[in-house]
Design a protein around this nucleic acid. Structure first.
Lengths: 211, 211, 211, 211
DNA sequence: TATGAATGAGTATTCATTCAT
DNA sequence: TATGAATGAATACTCATTCAT
């Protein structure tokens, strides 16, 4: 029997590990996936490589994941969780500050730090994974960012009696994230990140006050 | 990208060999397929085995065939051609004889001989190949057999002023082919094939005269 | 210690289930085997699939069976038992009737009905299971059929004072079973099964009276 | 003689086509490359596919390119040329206008139009080609953009007596290109591109006047 | 006994690349 | 120069079977 191929990327895990042993295995696989992406790029990510680096058999990989795409999806989810946790923490900072610009700077700095920490991995995810934007985690991250920005600014806005048009908010979000991506992944080493962040925070704040 | 599997058995060749070299390669692959089926059964038929036995690279196999099913299909076509050639020759015999029973006996004998020649291969094709009845060659063979029988008997019928109901013809065909298959593939060695063929010819002839 | 390359298939159960629960499990496995064969063909029959469909663990499957071949063998035995029971019942019919043709028709009808009931399963068993003819149940079934035919006809023969040569009996048996197989598994839907059975019964009876 | 495990990608053509026919072949290959990237993604780009779609032999492909990376590089160069030509044209517009904001809007609109025209191809290049940022054309494009922006604004600046810090220029460039990429490749269909461009032009102009 | 996590040999298939014609 | 047949290393994925719990 021949088999026809059709693109039906499946990002869900086949089975959720319940026992302790299997949970450790799955964790090792996801970590192996991250390491391989960093060191060899997406072209170097093979299921066999994941198995080898994780120290499990290839059979075990397919026990839990339908293919490497699902491992990447799981990795993205872990990164999303880390980011979300951080953002929520930084949001509190926003609340307690009276200076909008300082709060903004903190927010950007936190994001920037996290992105730098995973720079190599991020570069591969952004520039090489063909289905990154179909990943549930990616969609959630975008929503999350938007929500955090909106909620955070809402309070500030009330404080400052600011009104922000949705258009402006969208522009701010893309402008900020675009600049951060650019800064982290593409800027030449001569560029001083801290200065760019300062400048970005200033611009965004001004923008906001005028929007 | 994951790929979904759907049963879409493809029996057609990917490419028809045009150059002499490639035609020799394809022939070697089909012969290898036959040998492997005989010696290891259908479970032993792998594309890698075909390549190895044929003395070509695995890449060459996939150059011409989409999968092993297509190689089997091609083998079946070659066997069909051999059978058809034989039947047509034997049909002439039918024409020149005046004794219906003798003609029938010759016809059955010829088929039986051919089947015995490929006994091992036939056994595997009939009892192990899951898609044998979907093969174009199988359908053609059935039609061919039916046609040969019909045409051959038509002349005899005119000679003898016999009338044969379609129901009877179907029964004769299945009865004959069933018995032959049984005789060639399943009969214990104690059974005397020649006697069975004699008896079958007699029965069929009587049947015909009464039908 | 001989290690054969060619696996020597083992059709026997490892352990006979004694407790009620074990027997239920084994029954579930065999039924799962039947369902899978019907729905996915022999290529789809894996020990893991059997375990899943049967709702038991893969470990339990190997507790009772040395491999999937033994499960198929067990399934064949169950089918043999069903067939034997039916045939014996139908044989009684033969005894009480005075018309040989009617009795023969009943016999064929009963067999045909049973085969139709398991048509899909039968098709897979006959055309895909490589070791069907090595199965104890298959051999027994053949013997049983032969025996039933012989015994049944013996009485009839005495009644009618008929004498049947062994050659004829063999031909009748293969002719009948071949036609039935053809009718159930390969006939186009345009063929009227009842008519074919009528015709077959007539022929066989005539045959018998002449044999 | 060092043999690197990690293949050192070669982006240069093996041979520059001199004859007319060769030039047509190479053009066909590059166009085929573009079509395949659009329709099948980078994973679908194989040298064999390029040859087939271009209607040339696989041997010819390797006659001119050392591998598919070089074909992509050549494609990128063609796109660079198209972009450069357009930008230079739009730059003239900037010169002749008195309203900075309108000029900026035209500039952004022109870029946006070009990007939309190649949206599918651009998406694959940006998000799937692992070596996009190593491509000579990519580096040149960045320089070109920066240069155009700098030159264009220099004149405007003189006109308006504006002074722009390098930091601000960098921020403007990344902010603009990031927003455009986001708009063209990632924005949900609900986003009104024209409005975003208006807003972006306004912000950049204000930014400039304050910088 | 029963479970199911883990194993890894084995199979199908692709695709960059060479080279005889 | 151009062709395209041939190669084979590399990759995805399955499934029979074992064994610690």
């Amino acid at each position: 029997m021949r088999t026809e191929k059709r693109k039906v990327t499946d990002f869900a895990m086949k089975k959720v590990p319940s026992q302790q042993r299997s949970r450790a295995s799955v964790k090792a696989m996801v970590q192996a996936c991250a390491r391989i992406l960093e060191e060899r790029g997406y072209a170097g990510l093979t299921t066999n490589a994941v198995a080898e680096v994780a120290g499990v058999s290839i059979g075990s990989v397919y026990e839990y994941f339908p293919g490497k795409e699902a491992i990447v999806a799981r990795l993205a989810e872990d990164m999303l969780a880390e980011t979300t946790a951080l953002l929520h923490g930084r949001l509190d900072l926003t609340d307690h500050r009276h200076d909008l610009k300082v709060a903004m700077r903190h927010f950007l700095g936190a994001l920037h730090g996290l992105m730098c920490k995973h720079r190599r991995l991020l570069r591969v995810l952004v520039f090489q994974v063909p289905y990154l934007h179909q990943l549930p985690a990616t969609r959630q991250l975008q929503q999350e960012l938007y929500r955090v920005l909106q909620t955070g600014l809402q309070k500030t806005r009330q404080q400052y009696r600011l009104k922000v048009a949705p258009e402006t908010l969208y522009l701010m979000a893309t402008s900020a994230s675009g600049t951060l991506i650019h800064l982290v992944l593409m800027a030449p080493p001569t560029v001083d990140g801290e200065l760019v962040l300062d400048s970005l925070a200033t611009r965004l704040t001004d923008w906001l006050k005028q929007g």
